[in-house]
Design a protein around this nucleic acid. Structure first.
Lengths: 191, 191
DNA sequence: AAATATACGGAACCATGGTTCCGTTTGTCA
DNA sequence: TGACAAACGGAACCATGGTTCCGTATATTT
């Protein structure tokens, strides 16, 4: 896969990834393989040569997405010196992105063990990035002492679903309010 | 539908509803019509005579479920005199039930406008029941003054998804913790 | 420029699961 | 108890969407 790859194959792989990202962003887990191929200007056969199955493709995309998130959180940690601002800012940044990305909203459900295997490194990367932000916030006493890294993931899972449910339109779900409540709830108030 | 109905039809309708509840509880939105019919000891044809479409059936079940919830919340309001205990107890009761019911966990996604139309009365009923509990808690000063009835629904949507994601098993999602955080967060601490 | 391995396109395939159809059965009523 | 409307069962139907297959095209190499 790495050493030599025909130039057209390389180009197509990129086209496919771009198309896939667009399709999944728009339609979430039920983006269609045919549609992705069409967007990429490529036949389904080609698509399948690059990714043996839909799950593989999903795994790849999750990997990229989480990797980007990790990068963003690291940057927040470095550029924002105020511990609470880094925490809140990082979270808001991520939720804003998620709000525009159906795939990410529903990631916990698209993420089969198969797919997660591919994305594993990015998961770890992201946990580490958040770990630093959280640690600093706790040390500064602006975040509940019992807050854990995994609380982020779990909360994001819930929030993403609220977004998705809201978008579906059978009933309104005010996820922004829940985010505010959450932030309010986990912020440590020093007395 | 109401006036006269052949006895076997009546009996079957009940069998179907029972079977459907079981199937949806177990498999959530992707319970299968064939399976439901089989469980009810009935042909698919019969199933479809009673409910013109799967969505109709879903609507009916949501209706029943929410109606039960409303009843439970009303009881809490009457039997539990402590305002906070009623609020927390009601919420925990509901989440416990949800934890054992895949259909309910994913309700916001199964609930098409079609289905919601049928369930509408129960939605209102439930909102009213919670309204009383919330009002009393706010008056007693044990709940954030800006808490709203709809916050319950939105939160439950998120929590249900965490449960579902957790059950899927690609990654752990500690929804109990989130429930505790939420309760902690919305509880008003009198100074 | 010919030879060959690689990659491509997209029609066809197949599994899944909701829905329909129609010949048969059963409850009800006179 | 016969007649008929109402209800039943379940095989067949159909749409959807992932996946495979194979004849064709193209990059690379000598």
């Amino acid at each position: 896969m790495a050493t030599t790859m025909r130039s057209d194959a390389l180009r197509n792989r990129q086209l496919i990834l771009d198309a896939a990202r667009a399709a999944f962003t728009e339609h979430g887990e039920d983006a269609q393989m045919d549609d992705i191929a069409r967007r990429a200007g490529v036949g389904v056969g080609t698509l399948y040569r690059h990714f043996r199955t839909k799950e593989m493709l999903v795994g790849e995309l999750i990997h990229v997405k989480l990797s980007d998130f990790a990068e963003a959180v690291r940057r927040k940690f470095e550029e924002e010196s105020d511990p609470w601002a880094a925490f809140e800012g990082g979270l808001r940044e991520q939720t804003d992105v998620m709000a525009r990305d159906a795939a990410h909203q529903r990631m916990p459900f698209a993420a089969t063990p198969e797919a997660m295997q591919r994305a594993e490194p990015a998961v770890r990367e992201l946990r580490e990035a958040w770990g630093k932000v959280i640690e600093r916030a706790k040390e500064a006493g602006v975040l509940r002492q019992d807050f854990e890294v995994d609380d982020i993931r779990t909360f994001m899972c819930g929030l993403g679903s609220m977004m998705a449910a809201d978008a579906q339109g059978a009933m309104p779900y005010d996820w922004r309010r829940q985010l505010d409540l959450f932030l309010d709830g986990v912020r440590a108030t020093r007395h």
